[in-house]
């Protein structure tokens, strides 16, 4: 494995509540190189918070602490807000879940993609628009010029998510976090969107962190899989070795997925050990 870009040790994300502080991420450690890392877990397992804490987008009163939170030689928790802004988008970027809510309704698609580029340096207008069109073509949009002039409500969900990918990749980051990038989409376009992410990540040799609740999907698109539950890492597996999972929670997750060629009367339910999160 290549030298890790991101090293995290004992990461904790804490939110105060009326019944005391709650650790939604309760001390996890992992590293990410130029590889494809999957994070799976059920709702509330802390996987999205892990992604957002890397970009330091946990808003107060939420708190992020870690023994080590190193990206490219610098401690992310020590950076000023201005230094952090230079990293967001340009070095580490994130594909959001639902393009219906994550794209600004009053700006055209082209403006929003161009903004991602302009936020990190001054480029001549002509070059910006040329790169926007190239980027749209790279995410397999057939008529980039027309699409760039559309507003988000004028594009379909699948195309909205491709626009989102284009927007997040245009400054050429080193790490792409994809937080449930397809769970808001029709099943028919999910594979297409993931293929585009996969293709771009490979071409650019980036690190990918794919966050999902879908174990099969993550193991298909990732090299390694981290299974999370109740804010903790339950198990880390190479994606080819899911069958060899030893932890009972992972086994239960795998067991709970129905297969086409079977006739089970009952699907097993997961043991909800995450009482402290609820």
């Amino acid at each position: 494995m290549t030298k890790p870009l991101l090293e995290v040790e004992n990461l904790r994300v804490t939110f105060p509540t009326s019944r005391g502080d709650v650790d939604v991420v309760a001390g996890i450690s992992f590293s990410l190189g130029r590889e494809r890392l999957g994070i799976v877990g059920e709702s509330g397992s802390g996987k999205s918070m892990t992604g957002r804490s890397i970009l330091r987008l946990i808003r107060p009163p939420g708190r992020v602490r870690a023994d080590l939170f190193r990206f490219d030689g610098q401690n992310l928790l020590d950076l000023s807000e201005r230094q952090m802004r230079a990293i967001r988008g340009a070095r580490i970027s994130m594909v959001m879940q639902d393009p219906k809510f994550a794209l600004n309704p009053v700006m055209t698609v082209g403006e929003q993609i161009a903004e991602a580029l302009r936020a990190h340096g001054n480029l001549p207008r002509r070059e910006v628009s040329a790169r926007v069109l190239d980027m749209l073509a790279a995410v397999r949009i057939t008529d980039p010029k027309r699409v760039a002039s559309l507003y988000p409500h004028e594009v379909s969900g699948g195309m909205g998510q491709r626009v989102m990918i284009a927007m997040m990749l245009i400054p050429e980051p080193d790490i792409l976090i994809a937080d449930e990038p397809t769970s808001a989409l029709d099943v028919s376009v999910q594979a297409q969107v993931l293929d585009i992410i996969d293709e771009q990540v490979r071409q650019r040799g980036m690190g990918l962190m794919l966050i999902s609740h879908d174990l099969a999907l993550v193991s298909h698109y990732c090299d390694r899989v981290i299974v999370m539950n109740a804010g903790r890492i339950v198990e880390t597996l190479d994606s080819g070795q899911l069958g060899a999972a030893s932890h009972p929670y992972t086994r239960a997750l795998i067991e709970a997925v129905p297969r086409l060629d079977e006739t089970r009367d009952w699907l097993p339910t997961l043991p909800r050990a995450g009482g402290e999160v609820a």
Binding site: N104, P105, A119, P171
Partner: peptide, 15 residues
Amino acid sequence: GQEYVTTARVKGVSE
């Protein structure tokens, strides 16, 4: 509190 405001922050847009 909207998602697209978070998106803008993810892109590194100034506050």
